[in-house]
Design a protein around this nucleic acid. Sequence first.
DNA 1: GTCTATAGACTGATAGAC
DNA 2: GTCTATCAGTCTATAGAC
Lengths: 191, 191
Amino acid sequence: MDTRISLLESAERAVRERGYNGFSYADLAREIGIRKASIHYHFPTKANLGSAMIERYSARFFGSLADIAETGQSAADQLRAYIQVYRDALATGTQVCLCVSLSASRDSLSSEMLDRLNRFHEDSVAWLTQLFDRAAQDKSIANLAPADREANAALALVEGAQLLARARKDVAPFDQALATLTARLASPPLH
Amino acid sequence: MDTRISLLESAERAVRERGYNGFSYADLAREIGIRKASIHYHFPTKANLGSAMIERYSARFFGSLADIAETGQSAADQLRAYIQVYRDALATGTQVCLCVSLSASRDSLSSEMLDRLNRFHEDSVAWLTQLFDRAAQDKSIANLAPADREANAALALVEGAQLLARARKDVAPFDQALATLTARLASPPLH
DNA sequence: GTCTATAGACTGATAGAC
DNA sequence: GTCTATCAGTCTATAGAC
C-alpha cells in the first residue's frame, strides 16, 4: 500500500483519540510496521505531518459538506446530515473531529497548522451561515435567530457535544446535547 | 508560600493552556523555583497531582455555582451568571475550563481522574437541569425544551464555545456562539 | 524507500544526603 | 522539605549503508 497514506490515517486516528501530544513517531512505526526513522522520509518533521493531516481531513470534511449542499434538500435535512457527519466521526465515542482535538492542544501546533485550523472553523461557520440563510427562506427550522449567530452556536454545540461524548466514551451524550436543536427541525425523514 | 498550592495552581494553568500531555514536572519546577525531584514529595506521581487538581478545581467551580443558586435570582439571571463563569475562565482566550481540556486527552488520564471528570459533567448537568426546571416556572427563558435536554445542550454549548475561543485565542467566538442562548433570556440586568 | 545506529534532549521517577 | 545525582525510558531528528 501507500506508506504515506497509511501514516496519515494512523496519525489522524491517534490525534482524534489521544490529542496532538498523545502520539509519537514510534507509535506510528509500530502500527504500520516500519521503523520510525523511515517516517522522516515521508514527513521530515512532526509539524509537516500535522499540516498534511489537517489538509487531508479538511478536504474530506468539506467534500462531504459540498455533497450535502448539492442535494438541494431543505435546510432542516441538510442540518440533519451535517449533525450526522459529526456523529459518525465519533465512531463509538472513541474519536472526536480532528479540529476539536487540535483546538484543545493549540499551543503545541506550528503556525501553519494553526492557520489551517482557523480556516477550518471559518469555512465551517460560512457553510452553516448559508444553511441558516436558506432556513430563513424555506422555514424548515423553527425559532430562527440571525444566520451568523445560529451558525456559530451550531458549530460550538456539535464540537462541545463531541467532547462530552468523548469524556464518557459513549455517543449518548452527543445525542442528548443535540436534542434541542434537532427538535427545531421540520418534517424528519423516515427511518 | 505553600508549595503544594503553588504546584496545583501552576499545573492547572498549564493543563488549561496546553492540555494534560502538554506540561511536565520540569515545567512546574522552573515556574515555582524548586527542583523537579522535590515535586515528588508533594505528589508521588503525575496522576496523583492530576487527581488533586481536578478535586480542587471542582470544589471551586461548584462552590461558585452554589453561590449563584443561593442568590435566588431568576433562572435567566442564574444562567447569565453561569455563562459568565465560563467566560471568565477563558481569561483572554488562553485557557479553557480544566474539564474541557481533560476531556480532549481522556486516554492519558488515570481511572481516578476519569471518575472525577465524569462526576464533574454529571454534577454540571444536574445543576443546569434544576436551573431549567426553575425556568419552566418563572418563565424567564423563552422557547423551553424539557429541562434535561436544555441542560445537556447548554453544557455542550459553553464547552464548545470555549474550544472555538481557545483556537482563536480570542473571547469573541465565545460570545458569538452564546448569542442565541442569551437572546432567549428575559430582562437583562443593567451594566 | 527502508534500514541500523546514534544523537541530544526530555520524560516521570527513585535513592539518599542535608 | 528540598537538594544532587542518577535511572531507564521516551521523544524528534539525522547520518549514512543498502
